[in-house]
């Protein structure tokens, strides 16, 4: 029976050890899957260069990360939330209710959203937001009336586009990227084409209703929501030569041998055109730091300032090499972290 006793002893040991929680000595990060690659690159370099342990970076999406972030203060909660969008009022409130009142907002740079298709596929080389609105919106104005989108082929939208079925693979609603896509492409196209003005004018809709009607994406199978990562979008494009997908610039730059990118309103997406603001579809990336944890979790402030240091987030740093568009106002962000400026 010796073996059984030994196992029982070990089991008792584990249970006993489980009751006493341990102090955390590494920074815990969670959130956006768009920011994840950048955060892991910085975490790796941070672990290599400093005596602090390498931070642990979890994925899961901006909303999930911020929710975890707002669960409270203490070692069981995370220190940093990554987000591919700014924190919402609702989330700040939820944070405050749980005692997370002091939040430092850090903008790490910008990310472009690009439209890409198979290299050997049809010639999707130039788009405008207007075309995307007409291809993907659920309702269109035909003869002064709002009807289901009649466009089946890209050439129906615009004769200059290839004569192939519309097959768009766009990020699912749980992604922060979807929000940017709807606002900066679909809604912009709706306004550009004058459809928005018609809705509020001739059709007598309120501004909010018109916006919602503009941004509603068709659900008849021409547009497919991808809830997974860009790798899933890529494999869908691989399988469908007429498919066109929405990607992050960094992902595209890592896969230029398989994807060809289209211009938006005549501008080629690149780190340069995004940093100058010429390329229209881009968004800032953030992370949020819990000020109450600075000084409690070793290395937290050092990690935050290392993240936005010139050597890391600057135009020639490893983040830019991966595809981040460096923030021209990086110096302000560095100063804000040094002073531990919290959001209002």
């Amino acid at each position: 029976m010796k073996a059984t006793n030994l196992i029982a002893l070990a089991a008792a040991g584990i249970v006993a050890a489980a009751t006493g929680a341990q102090a955390r000595d590494q920074v815990a990060v969670a959130g956006s899957s768009t920011v994840l690659p950048y955060a892991s690159i910085v975490a790796e370099a941070f672990g290599e260069n400093f005596d602090f342990p390498t931070p642990v970076v979890e994925s899961g999406g901006s909303s999930a990360g911020l929710k975890k972030f707002c669960e409270g203060v203490g070692e069981a909660t995370i220190d940093i939330a990554n987000a591919s969008r700014a924190i919402r009022e609702k989330e700040i409130k939820a944070c405050a209710e749980n005692g997370v009142t002091e939040i430092i907002e850090v903008r790490i740079g910008y990310d472009g959203i690009v439209f890409a298709s198979q290299t050997d596929g049809p010639a999707f080389t130039a788009f405008t937001p207007d075309q995307w609105y007409h291809a993907l919106a659920a309702k269109q104005i035909v003869d002064g009336e709002l009807v289901d989108n009649p466009n089946m082929k890209w050439s129906d939208v615009d004769p200059s586009l290839p004569d192939v079925e519309i097959a768009a693979f766009i990020p699912g609603t749980k992604h922060g990227t979807r929000e940017v896509f709807e606002e900066k492409v679909i809604l912009a196209g709706c306004e550009e084409s004058g459809a928005m003005a018609k809705m509020t004018g001739d059709l007598g809709m309120s501004e909010d209703d018109a916006e919602d009607a503009c941004m509603e994406v068709r659900a008849d199978g021409k547009s497919v929501d991808i809830d997974g990562d860009y790798t899933e979008t890529l494999s869908r494009i691989d399988a469908n030569s007429n498919g066109i997908g929405v990607f992050g610039l960094a992902f595209y730059e890592n896969n230029t041998d398989k994807l060809k990118v289209a211009t938006m309103s005549g501008v080629v997406p690149s780190t340069e055109s995004i940093s100058t603001g010429e390329y229209p579809v881009s968004r800032p990336l953030f992370f949020y730091v819990k000020k109450a944890h600075i000084g409690v979790v070793p290395g937290l402030k050092e990690f935050a300032s290392f993240f936005v240091s010139d050597a890391v987030a600057g135009p020639s740093g490893p983040l830019a090499q991966y595809g981040l568009v460096a923030d021209p106002e990086l110096a302000d962000t560095q100063a804000a972290i040094a002073a531990e400026d919290v959001m209002n």
Binding site: G13, I14, A17, A21, Q22, Q26, L36, A39, S40, A43, E44, G47, P53, T54, V56, V57, E58, S59, G60
Partner: peptide, 17 residues
């Protein structure tokens, strides 16, 4: 547990945490 972790955990029992 789906995380980016680079530091090896210590030997048990401490490493289990």
């Amino acid at each position: 547990m789906v995380a980016f972790v680079r530091d090896y955990p210590d030997a048990p029992p401490g490493g289990l945490f």
